[in-house]
Design a protein around this nucleic acid. Sequence first.
DNA 1: GATGAATGAGTTTTCATTCAT
DNA 2: TATGAATGAAAACTCATTCAT
Lengths: 217, 217, 217, 217
Amino acid sequence: MPGARKTFFRLDSEKQKRILSAAIDEFATWGFHRASINRLVGVLGIAKGSIFQYFGNKEGLFSYVFDYAIETVKSGLKKVRKDTEDLDFYSRIKASLLEGVSFIDRHPRLYKIYLKMVFQEDFPSREKYLKKIRLFSVDYLRPLIETGIRRGDIRGDLDPDMAAFMLDSVFDRFMQAYAVPFFDSGAGIHGASRDEIDRMIERLIDTLRLGFSSREK
Amino acid sequence: MPGARKTFFRLDSEKQKRILSAAIDEFATWGFHRASINRLVGVLGIAKGSIFQYFGNKEGLFSYVFDYAIETVKSGLKKVRKDTEDLDFYSRIKASLLEGVSFIDRHPRLYKIYLKMVFQEDFPSREKYLKKIRLFSVDYLRPLIETGIRRGDIRGDLDPDMAAFMLDSVFDRFMQAYAVPFFDSGAGIHGASRDEIDRMIERLIDTLRLGFSSREK
Amino acid sequence: MPGARKTFFRLDSEKQKRILSAAIDEFATWGFHRASINRLVGVLGIAKGSIFQYFGNKEGLFSYVFDYAIETVKSGLKKVRKDTEDLDFYSRIKASLLEGVSFIDRHPRLYKIYLKMVFQEDFPSREKYLKKIRLFSVDYLRPLIETGIRRGDIRGDLDPDMAAFMLDSVFDRFMQAYAVPFFDSGAGIHGASRDEIDRMIERLIDTLRLGFSSREK
Amino acid sequence: MPGARKTFFRLDSEKQKRILSAAIDEFATWGFHRASINRLVGVLGIAKGSIFQYFGNKEGLFSYVFDYAIETVKSGLKKVRKDTEDLDFYSRIKASLLEGVSFIDRHPRLYKIYLKMVFQEDFPSREKYLKKIRLFSVDYLRPLIETGIRRGDIRGDLDPDMAAFMLDSVFDRFMQAYAVPFFDSGAGIHGASRDEIDRMIERLIDTLRLGFSSREK
DNA sequence: GATGAATGAGTTTTCATTCAT
DNA sequence: TATGAATGAAAACTCATTCAT
């Protein structure tokens, strides 16, 4: 039901972009509940009624912004998947992590909205939005793992559920670790250079690859 | 600075508990900003002014609840650490995960407050509260890993930073995975029995132990 | 910064006047701090939010009322200055005092607001408001004195600073003396008629003119 | 009716002074209405109920403070009147002005309370308090003028009502002019030295003595 | 289609006073 | 005599939504 209406899409495309961008700002800064339509129209210099005409209500606006965010993430990862088709499993994981970091650099506000959303159970239709995200992770990581096993990059008896779970956890946490200082200072993981980030990822992947136990024969 | 005042501690202890419990309910359900003192005193059947006499302001109340939560988590983990002192690394990790799951069963509302808090950047002194939590994870996991290496449970060349990072991520995510369906239905990880949870944890630890790569000689 | 917003000026002019008048009432009766927006909107029969839409906040409303008061005083005195251009110094002083008295008759509530304001050090931007008033007295009285000296109405060796200071003091006090009983009973200086006021002013000016000392040769 | 009760006077005299001083602070800073008993007892570290036991209610406390202020002013002026009995009129006026200035230096908080009070019509029994002050001015200035005329310091045909009115106005304004910057910076009339204040007073008295008109024979 | 005035329930916080202990 | 917990009305201000123009 919610989302943008025909009226919105009939607007001149420049205006559509201005509204989208201002709405992203508002939700990224304040989260859903504390975002204020009053403030938004103040910034945009348009009539309050217009927002309601375009999106029905506050949730409709959020829904539009959120779908845009999902599209953006998806297209980034699709590109990585395709570009790395011929590489081995670990290189693909590394590329994916780098894409995550780069996504935060390119779209910090969208990532903020994601974080805001994840743990606020109470806003309308939260479940629906979360499902779109979760599916995603499974859709993306499971095939990667399966291909890795088939090609012999990963040991054949690896538990694919748990592997996916671990990757998902580590991905998420790594992005958070990168993002939080980035939001404060504009530099990820407390000012680490791109090279340092690179090395960190390698160490992380090594740990994933080798596991904790000693390799006695 | 904020927190409970003398006035509060002078109250009859039954009343203190009633207020603490109702406040936990309120913050667990609504988060910090949307929690309502009006609603709270309505539930408690006391005067609005009283809350402000006890805690100074809304943040004082939150601070009191939060410190209580931290104490509760800490005492649970301390017990695990002590009770498992003689066990090997993987058993201790398993016990810790089980304690996490059990904590959610025993104190679902406190865990909810934690989740609500983590990604709402804007509420007063959030940093201060987060620091208390973060310290925690490091304080707890690093010694476990170091002892594991010393005792030979873990390979000596394991990267301890990344290992701690992985454990922290996986712990957090596992607890979230357990908690979210738990909040909805009262049963963790979509209704799994205690036995099933147990097996899941074992599979997870196995994956951690062995890593992704095949064990060529 | 504060003051009325576009929204307010777009209102039907009758409504603007009703709001201005009710706000003057409220501030004149209660001063800044004890004035109540709740009471105001109750009297006006409009929604509380509307006042905040028109003026942003309480100070914005006060600022609007205050600027209106200043305008009203200024225009009265300007008229006197112009109308008495050709008269001698003492006649101009008399006319000014009469204008002061008449201002209180015409705008008792505005004068009340002035009195309330002068000695409440703490309300927001008080200094800014006071400055607007102080400038005023200097701007008005000094030229009058200088012209009086030039024309020979006043002795050439009069100390102009102290003369201005005395006039300002006496003006202020006279208006207060007139106003305070006026507020209580509706009749200035305890029920004196316009003729009596007139004579009082003459006696006052005589005292100013001749000074206290005996006129020895 | 209002004022301090027996209970208060039975207190150890040191405590009485602490309470008086803290109450003066509170009223001087906040005026009557915005003064807070909560804050006061917080500062004093005594029970809220005690204040009500000592003074009945807020007005009782104010009344006590106010009577103390009047006594303090009176005793200062009485001393001046007596010490200057043998001096001529203008010297006595000068001494009185200096006493006013010195009073502000010695008791700035009491003078603040006076200013706060004068133009806040609405607090309980304000008229009663004001009367005590007004009487005062008449009681003090009229005899001074009459003695001055009798002794030939002042011309015999001076209008004594208007003379008293002028003196009262100029006194009041001078003290305000001294006090307001004093409250802000701790130095009267924008940092003037005692010598400069002295000269100002002399210029002012000269202007009063000689009047505005030229002294043609 | 666009506008923006109107709404009123909601928020946190303050405070003088009472009264049982 | 002293204490301090309890009260609840009042304050300023916010905001999503509606609807007449």
